[in-house]
């Protein structure tokens, strides 16, 4: 019998990064459970969870529930109520996603380089699915100066590369203005 030790998604990458007015850091991975209510079971599921997020919504309670796609939410954290299986498909996604927090005055300006998303329209907190070039993205707006960006674990390196290039450009512009 062997024993396995874990390796994080950003194992070899130099994080956190700072450029001008923004800072990029890895988010300590929480347990992530995808919850997909079966047709007609939304109300029953909502009763057990307290609420189920509509598109774009983030609910903060004992668990954080983040809308993460069509008919699906991610529960961030431990302590999912028992017996949800009757109402929804549950799926462990804890190791599937890699998250970065982008914090700072220029966070929106940096994201405007990367995502074709109208960030003005987003409430805080809220979530959106989008593409960063070809990178799939789950974006969570925490505030005007903090955005969490989640992508597939296998693309963590590419996400950092894209973010760093955009941060560098924005910081350089700030330096000349």
């Amino acid at each position: 019998m062997i024993e396995l030790s874990p390796t994080g998604a950003f194992g070899v990458l130099r994080l956190p990064l700072e450029q001008g007015e923004t800072r990029l850091s890895a988010i300590a991975p929480p347990r992530i459970t995808a919850i997909a209510p079966y047709p007609g079971q939304m109300n029953a599921l909502s009763r057990r969870l307290g609420a189920f997020p509509a598109p774009g919504e983030v609910h903060d309670g004992q668990l954080r529930l983040v809308w993460s796609g069509r008919e699906m939410a991610f529960a961030f954290g431990e302590g999912l109520p028992e017996g949800l299986e009757d109402f929804a498909a549950l799926c462990d996604q804890s190791d599937a996603w890699a998250g970065l927090a982008l914090v700072g005055q220029d966070a929106q300006a940096v994201l405007a380089r990367l995502v074709a998303l109208d960030l003005r329209a987003l409430a805080a907190p809220s979530s959106a699915r989008a593409l960063m070039g070809h990178l799939p993205l789950l974006l969570i707006k925490e505030s005007d100066t903090r955005f969490d960006l989640w992508t597939f674990r296998s693309m963590a390196d590419s996400l950092v590369h894209e973010m760093e290039a955009a941060m560098r450009g924005v910081a350089a512009r700030r330096a000349i203005s």
Partner: peptide
């Protein structure tokens, strides 16, 4: 229907 108006490149 879920996400509202989005750029063509997402479709």
């Amino acid at each position: 229907p879920c996400c509202g108006w989005r750029d063509l490149r997402e479709f």
